[in-house]
Design a binder for these strands. Structure first.
Lengths: 113, 113
DNA sequence: CTGATAGTTAGCGACATGGTTAACCATTCG
DNA sequence: CGAATGGTTAACCATGTCGCTAACTATCAG
């Protein structure tokens, strides 16, 4: 088994979940999944002010969901998949639970509409 | 593809993530994965007061992570896996991302210690 | 140097969260 | 009935979140 949480990134699942508990931040994560972007580029689609986005980015960075590289006066943000992978790891035992239980419910519902 | 969010359970992923952003609530979820339990049974392992647990349960219920059946004066709580499955669904595209990218990093790190 | 651009920090207000203790239903038991 | 049990609700306090505007820092262009 592989350890997905690196030494420098302490397993603070609470912080990760809290960061993901905001639709704007999830949208930023989704945007970064398509590739790196600057703070301004990330802020553009949203109606909230730039300072608001700036603090969302800080929250994502603190949760280790995002890394930042300062290049001159622009900040390049990138998604760090490891924190998401920790969420996935946390989910694992429950996944097993619904694979044994809930899929049978799915089957039942499909066969009895 | 199966739709895991049922009509009665509106897709409020923010609420689910927020509910999971607290260690006590994650512990309750973990406890309920082993089977149903009463509020008192769930509160026992924790050092916080019973009212505090009561409100954690209410938060989990509001996020549809937990269902409650009132039997006489005891409340029986059960885990509802569907909300966790929504988290899993949300995670899916990212899972694909790290399966194509990060596993190669894993391989690299294992081969170059 | 000057001005424009990229972004953060500061300060404020409104509201949510999480914990406490005390009080309050509701149900079971003798 | 009266008392104990299971649990929630109320009131309060401290702290955190999220948005705003205004002000600031830093870099690039001319």
């Amino acid at each position: 088994m592989v350890n997905h949480s690196l030494p420098g990134a302490p397993r603070d699942l609470s912080g990760v979940f809290a960061a993901l508990a905001h639709p704007t931040r999830r949208a930023i994560v989704a945007a970064l999944a398509r590739g790196e972007a600057t703070a301004g580029e990330l802020a553009a689609p949203f109606e909230v002010s730039l300072p608001a986005i700036s603090r969302h980015l800080k929250a994502l960075e603190k949760a280790a969901l995002v890394t930042r590289e300062v290049r001159g006066r622009t900040h390049v943000l990138r998604l760090d998949l490891r924190s998401l992978r920790e969420v996935d790891d946390w989910l694992e035992p429950y996944r097993q639970a619904w694979e044994t239980r809930l899929d049978r419910l799915d089957t039942y519902l499909e066969e009895n509409p």
